[in-house]
Amino acid sequence: MNREELVAYALSKKGAREDYPFGPEPLVLKVGTKMFALIAEDAGGRPAISLKCEPETAYLLRQQYEAVKPGYHLNKQHWNTVTIDGTVPDGDIRGMIDESYALVARKLTRAEKEQLGLELRA
C-alpha cells in the first residue's frame, strides 16, 4: 500500500474525514470528533500510519512485525505506528485500520453516532 491507498481506504469508512489539527503533517483521520488514524512519513520518507488497538493485540502485532512499533507521540499501550515498507501484508494493514475505526466509533456519543448514521447498540 502507498499513502494514497491508505488514505482512500480509511476515508471509505462511514463518517470518516480528513483533518489537519497539528499543521500540514500528520494527516489525521477522524470519525466524528475522534481520531482513528494519523498518516505521516517516517525519517526515511516512507509512509507510516498510527492506529488505535486493543493493548493485547498491539503487543502481539509488535512481536509479529518489525515495522509495527508503539505509537509515535501517542499512548503506547493503545496505539501502534506501522511503517509501510512492504513487510506487513496489505490485508493486515486494512484489518488494523478496520479495528482502529471500530474502537473509536464505538466510543462516540449517541448524538454523534446518530448524526453519522452509525448503528446504535442497545
Rank of each mutant, 00 (worst) to 15 (best):
G32C: 05
T57P: 00
V68Q: 01
E25G: 00
D98H: 05
G15E: 03
L27N: 05
D42A: 11
K69C: 09
M96K: 08
M96H: 08
G91M: 05
Y65H: 12
L61N: 00
L103C: 09
Y20M: 05
A37E: 01
L29H: 00
R17A: 10
L108D: 09
R94T: 13
G15S: 06
D85P: 03
R106P: 02
Q77T: 15
E4Q: 12
P26W: 03
P70F: 08
G91C: 06
A40M: 12
L51Y: 12
V68F: 03
Q115D: 13
Y59L: 14
M96L: 15
L116G: 04
R110V: 15
D42Y: 10
T33G: 11
S12E: 12
E4I: 05
L103I: 14
S100T: 04
K52F: 09
K76W: 08
I93F: 04
G95Q: 13
G91E: 13
T81Q: 07
A111Q: 14
R3Y: 06
E56T: 14
H78Y: 14
V88H: 02
G23S: 09
L108I: 11
T109D: 13
G71S: 09
L27F: 07
P89C: 12
D42Q: 12
D98I: 08
L120V: 06
V82E: 01
K34F: 09
G15H: 02
A48S: 12
K30D: 06
N80F: 02
G23F: 07
A16R: 01
N2A: 01
Q64V: 14
E25M: 06
M35V: 07
K113Q: 03
R46D: 10
A102Q: 15
E25T: 12
K52Y: 12
R46N: 15
V7Q: 08
Y101N: 05
R121S: 09
E54N: 14
G117D: 08
E25Q: 07
K69V: 15
A48W: 01
G95N: 12
Y20P: 03
Q63I: 13
E66M: 06
L11T: 10
A37F: 04
G32W: 00
P26S: 04
Q77L: 12
L103P: 02
P89M: 11
S12V: 10
K113C: 03
P26G: 05
E114R: 13
G95T: 13
R106W: 04
A40L: 09
Q64D: 13
G91H: 06
S50C: 11
I49Q: 02
V68L: 05
R62K: 07
L38M: 15
A102F: 10
V88S: 04
E41G: 08
T33L: 04
G71N: 04
E56G: 12
R46A: 09
V82S: 00
S100Y: 03
T33P: 02
